[in-house]
Write a protein that binds this DNA or RNA. Structure first.
Lengths: 138, 138
DNA sequence: CTCGGTGCAAAGGGTTTGCATACAT
DNA sequence: ATGTATGCAAACCCTTTGCACCGAG
């Protein structure tokens, strides 16, 4: 039993290219639209709808992950395993953060009687690069 | 200098009622639409646009806070100071969590050279009440 | 009397979906 | 041949905005 697989059926060029785009270095934590524009350079006929459908499928299949960072747009991440993020409020760069262990919040929730199964942590601040730039410009 | 205040000019019935709705017990972390429907019971002519404008203003004035929980909708919170949330994946209830100390993620980010100024933490799981219900039904 | 706030309705941005067709199996 | 994935465009959902009127100060 539990043969792992879930949705994946056919392998299409579109699916492969969408996965490639999310995993492409140079595009970090892309939005669906960014993936769309990237794939279109290679396959000009692909549609936005198809990009969304394939992104959903890749997430469902555990091949990538979706992170509702910021507010409105979903960001896609080539790393499928749970992890957190740091967002630079100057340059907008998003970096993966490896949190070693459950944070203080988990303890607080457990104390309140809740059972915590997962979490989403986003840190905001100024990244290493922007801190350096700021130092230089003053 | 820094005399705190920012936008607030005129006091309207609409503004007061929107604030009341967010602070009303029984409505927890309401969405803009929920606030709209609540206020409309008292002031049937209020418009959704006005609700959004007043919510924005209250947030800007530091009288309430906005939390981009889940994915699509913004939730409003009567507590204006920074804090975190627990979301029950069974009943949907959202509870404020008081995190005593900066989590492990902050340390990881600092180690990477970033300057962390704020964060957003959302814990997912099963709340105290739902855990009890589950126990009873099995 | 002023000009900021309101109501209305249309516009916007991101994401989803219905449908006929194309294509992987 | 069979039915899933695609492309297209319309629909959706939440939120924002333009504009003329209203009303707090």
């Amino acid at each position: 039993m539990t043969h792992e697989r879930a949705s994946s059926r056919r392998t299409t060029r579109q699916l492969a290219l969408v996965l490639d785009a999310v995993q492409a270095s140079g595009i970090e934590h892309p939005t669906a639209d960014r993936v769309f524009r990237h794939v279109r350079r290679v396959l000009p006929t692909i549609s936005l709808g198809t990009v969304y459908r394939n992104l959903q499928r890749l997430v469902a299949d555990g091949r990538i992950s979706a992170a509702p960072l910021g507010a409105r747009v979903v960001r896609y991440d080539p790393t499928p395993t749970p992890h957190d993020h740091f967002v630079c409020q100057d340059c907008g760069r998003i970096e993966d953060i490896t949190v070693s262990r459950s944070s203080g919040g988990v303890r607080a929730a457990r104390r309140a009687g809740h059972e915590v199964s997962s979490h989403a942590l986003v840190l905001y601040g100024r990244c290493r690069t922007c801190r350096g730039a700021r130092r230089l410009s003053e």
